[in-house]
Write a protein that binds this DNA or RNA. Structure first.
Lengths: 364, 364
DNA sequence: ATGAAAGCGCTAACAG
DNA sequence: CTGTTAGCGCTTTCAT
């Protein structure tokens, strides 16, 4: 029986070899043997750090494919003193601002992959210890720190790690580390301008975090102060409101403050996606039609803005652009450049006018 | 000058040593030398695989502290054939169900840390190739696959990796892999029961994904079919509705279907946090008071349920428990157990009655 | 209870 | 252009 057998599959070939026993991986030595070259040649074919005859290269590459060869990351890291892993410290706790954090992470992973890097995850809760562990054990050789607070006890440690680090946000003292940040002040100005230009006389800024957070995160305080200044310049009144406790209840309790000027060209600025949801709900609840009785603008991604009906006039915080820039800076450091520490301040792409805003006909 | 100098700091001691040059890490060899023992003894102090005199142990531990020693992960992996890294494949794309995905990841990272494991991140988009890369290069030696579809092309590959894998979800063919899943059918039954017991006569199930998704993810179709069966058993009418296109608009267009029975003891089941938000909005928009004119129950975490006012009667999908169970199964495989593949079906902890439901006085 | 020594898989001198 | 060789830092026999 079975007089005619199909050609054996690659996998079988591997299984039959005696050196890379059973399930074990083929090593560069096996590849070298199969291709009839030295182990170092295999290495040079991979790294391109030495020129190799076309013929030899072909033989090596074929052997790699036949044996399903993958270089062992541990051995590489050990020898090369380079792990090709970056550590990403991000806040994942129960109180994480779930709204727009995934696109940041997604883009970071993507950018890392484009450069043949892996990403290990680290929670902000682990604090400085986590950084030390990963750097000390040589698991990662570059770090991305998200959710950086104005004063952040991870920074002194991070600066001492002796390897590239990039921050999301602008701490009071950056300890000589590179950082990227979104120009939230500029975003606030754009949002205020939009409301002022379309003839609104009163502006209320609504945030979802207690006042205390404004001190911890610069992007919050900066948003507030910039909005305040701009409103003054534009000659419109402004009030800054945030919820008093968690949940809708803590938000509803400040409803009066939000809606005081509901009958006199009121424009509301929502600082996060979640708060946008609430503001929309609040308006509906009070029988106010968005884009007619009251205007709402928000700092949120375009995709979030479009989820509403009417869609919300918005400025995007550009999560993907921010992550791309951060990774750009990080990899420049990795290849080793000695520039002084850099701050990349990402500008809003602009404001997108959608259905949630009225034009009171007073535009300049 | 400087007649009295303070005792030198640990760091200086390191810097002064000549072997671990400059910024370089101290190695176990350095520790051994400093403690006056063999390198192997240092190793045994760490692993505990051989008994060590209390005195020797103390000396070694002191040397480790003095030199700020951290074992090199690459070297360990190389020698020990164990990376102490698990790979987490998760969907992070633009369409990710942002709602409740962070708690899963948070708990996975936490559980990994408790067992001295690191977590590398992998996007679902990378498909089977990502798994092969990480396993082949020996970056990770165990895998967690989230967002598993009914038919998922990563599974055949995953099963062939030759290392522990655990799935979130129940594919049509699990390829002999372990899996954990939430009993969404039971959850649907609980939600229907709650509405039936409190005297509702019509139930509408609202989902946020198009019908097509129900085929891809078992938890969706199972939720629907279980709800349907249970409603029949309880003698109440049921309709299953989902939005027709993205955003609020696609949702509002099915508003009529949702609210047909608004005047006759209507109970609405929201299948996700996001859809809960919308249903609440829709009700308000139509002047219906939650817990009086209409009842809303949801499949969402307790913390999400409490965000609303009135709080929403809910069944939690238990993200943290699910992750804990998954990691439990995974680590049992890692220490090597030869049980047949397991499916851990996590039961809902129960339903929590809150303000969003009316009791029509017909409870049994 | 401890030491000495071999070697995991790779890269980078050093030789030709 | 290619081969030979010496480790990277650790764990684990094998000896004592």
């Amino acid at each position: 029986m079975n007089p005619v057998r199909p050609p054996r599959l690659v996998r079988s070939v591997i299984m039959d070899r005696d050196h890379p026993s059973g399930r074990g991986q083929a090593t560069s030595k096996d590849v070298a043997a199969a291709a009839g070259v030295a182990q170092s040649t295999v290495s040079y074919v991979m790294t391109g750090k030495r020129s190799v005859t076309a013929d030899v290269r072909r033989r090596v590459e074929k052997a790699m494919r036949d044996l399903d060869y993958h270089p062992n990351a541990g051995a590489r890291a050990l020898r090369g003193a380079k792990t090709n892993v970056i550590a990403l410290a991000v806040h994942l706790g129960a109180d994480a601002d779930v709204g727009d954090t995934l696109p940041y992470i997604d883009t970071i992973v993507e950018e890392a992959r484009n450069r043949e890097y892996e990403v290990v995850l680290l929670t902000t809760d682990e604090g400085p210890g986590g950084l030390q562990r990963l750097a000390g054990r040589r698991v990662a050789d570059a770090f991305v720190l998200m959710d950086v607070r104005t004063r952040d006890d991870r920074l002194a440690t991070a600066a001492d790690l002796g390897c590239p680090v990039v921050l999301f946000g602008r701490p009071a003292d950056s300890h000589g580390l590179d950082a990227v940040d979104f120009d939230t002040g500029r975003a606030a100005a754009l949002l205020v301008d939009e409301l002022a230009y379309t003839g609104h006389r009163h502006i209320v800024v609504v945030g979802d975090s207690p006042e205390a957070d404004a001190l911890e995160f610069r992007f919050i305080s900066e948003f507030h102060s910039s909005a305040r200044v701009r409103a003054q310049e534009r000659g419109v009144t402004i009030d800054i409101v945030h919820r008093e406790s968690n949940g809708w209840a803590g938000f509803e309790s400040v409803a009066d403050r939000i809606l005081v000027h509901r009958d006199d060209r009121l424009g509301i600025i929502a600082r996060t996606p979640r708060v946008t949801e609430w503001v929309v709900q609040l308006a509906r609840l009070h029988g106010l039609v968005l884009g007619r009785d009251v205007s709402v603008v928000a700092l949120c991604t375009d995709s979030t803005a479009r989820e509403f009906d009417p869609a919300i006039t918005n400025v995007s915080p550009e999560p993907r652009e921010l992550s791309r820039r951060a990774m750009g800076v990080l990899f420049e450091r990795i290849v080793g450049d000695d520039q002084p520490p850099r701050l990349e301040l990402v500008q809003p792409r602009g404001i997108t006018r959608r259905g949630s805003t009225t034009d009171h006909g007073l535009s300049e």
